[in-house]
Amino acid sequence: MTTLIAEGPVLLDIEDGIARVTLNRPEASNGVDVPTLQALHAAILRCHAEPTVRVVLLRGAGRNFCAGGDVKTFAAKGEDLPEYLREATAWLQIATSAMIQLKAPVVAVIQGFAAGGAGFGFVCAADLVVAADDARFFSGAVRVGMAPDAGTTVTLSRLVGLRRALDILLTNPTLSAAEALDLGIVSRVVPADELEAQAHELAAGLAAQPPLALAATKRLVWGGLGAGVEERLAEEARVVSELSGTADSREGLAAVLERRSPTFIGA
C-alpha cells in the first residue's frame, strides 16, 4: 500500500490500482468545512495525477459517511456566513467537478448518514454507490433555509425523475438504504458488516477492467446529461450563498443545533 496523504481531514492511499479517499472528521460525522473541501479537492487531484489509479473508493471514517456541511462552523459565522459559504461552495464545486471528471470510476461507500449538499451530493455525483443496509440518505438543505448544491439539482432528477427529485428536495424525507436502492440513488445494498469487503470486491473487479474503456464509458454517460452538472454548480453556489444571509437560514441552523423545530418567517 502506498500512503499519499496520511493525516488531516482527508486521507489517501493506493493499493492494487484502488485509491481510497477517506473523509476523516469522524468527530463531526465528516461534516465539511473549507479546509476539508480543499483537502478533498487535493486528494482527487492526486488521483488524477497517479497513473496507477484504476478506481476510487470514496469513504467516510467513523459511524457516518458525511453529514453534509459542518453546521456548527456555519452557525458560528453569523452575519459572515454568506461570504464563508461563497468560499465553501466554490471548493465544493471544484471538488465535485474533479470527481466527475476523473477517468477512474468513483465508488461511494456509505455507512450511517449521507446527508446535506456534501454527503447526499457526493452520493449523486459518484459513478457507483454501495450502501450498508442500515444507511440513511437525507437532503436537508431546505430545512435549514438553503438550497441543494454539489450538483444535486441536476444529478438527482436524472437518477430518480423530476417529480421524485422535487419530492425529495422539497420535503426532505430520510430515505432508508432499501428506498434509495428502489429509487436508483444507490447501486447496491449489502449487510453492514460486509460493506468494506463488498465495496473492495467491486473496486477490484473494476480495477481489472480495461481502463480506457471505463474512462470513455464514464465520459459518455456524464456528457449525456443535457444541462451539464458543471453549469449548474455555479448557479447553486450563488443561490446557497444568497440564502445563507437570510433570517430563515440563521433560524434553520440554530434549530438544528438546539434540536428544536424551526420557525420560518420568509425573510
Rank of each mutant, 00 (worst) to 15 (best):
S261C: 10
L220I: 09
R259M: 15
L253N: 07
S97Y: 01
R86W: 01
D33H: 06
A43R: 10
T3Y: 04
P105L: 08
V160W: 00
D149C: 15
A28I: 03
G205H: 03
G252K: 11
T263A: 13
S176L: 04
N64G: 02
A267N: 14
D33E: 13
P9T: 11
G112I: 11
R163A: 15
V123H: 05
G117V: 05
P105Y: 01
E15V: 15
D70Q: 13
G8A: 06
A197W: 00
G119S: 09
P210D: 08
E230R: 13
L183R: 04
E27W: 12
Q111G: 15
E179W: 02
V160R: 02
G184C: 06
L253T: 10
G68M: 01
L156V: 14
G140T: 01
R25Q: 15
A203T: 03
C66M: 03
A43N: 14
L58K: 06
A147E: 12
L170F: 14
S187M: 10
S244Y: 10
G205P: 00
A98V: 01
A75W: 12
A207R: 02
A204C: 02
F138K: 03
L166P: 06
A95C: 08
L40V: 12
D70Y: 03
L162D: 15
G116S: 11
A207K: 04
V10G: 05
H48D: 00
A208T: 01
G116Y: 12
D193P: 10
L253D: 09
A90L: 12
A177H: 09
L40D: 09
A43V: 13
A254R: 15
P191R: 11
A114N: 07
V239W: 01
E87Q: 11
A125V: 01
V186D: 02
A203G: 10
V186A: 00
R20N: 14
V34I: 14
F137A: 05
L128C: 06
H41E: 15
A90E: 06
E258I: 05
T263L: 13
T89I: 05
C124F: 11
L183V: 03
C124E: 14
L11Q: 05
A192N: 12
G116C: 07
A67T: 13
D133I: 08
D16W: 04
L225N: 04
V56Q: 02
L40F: 11
T89D: 15
V256R: 12
D70G: 08
L4R: 07
T171A: 08
L57D: 04
A90G: 06
D134R: 14
R232W: 11
N172L: 00
A177S: 15
F120Y: 13
F74V: 10
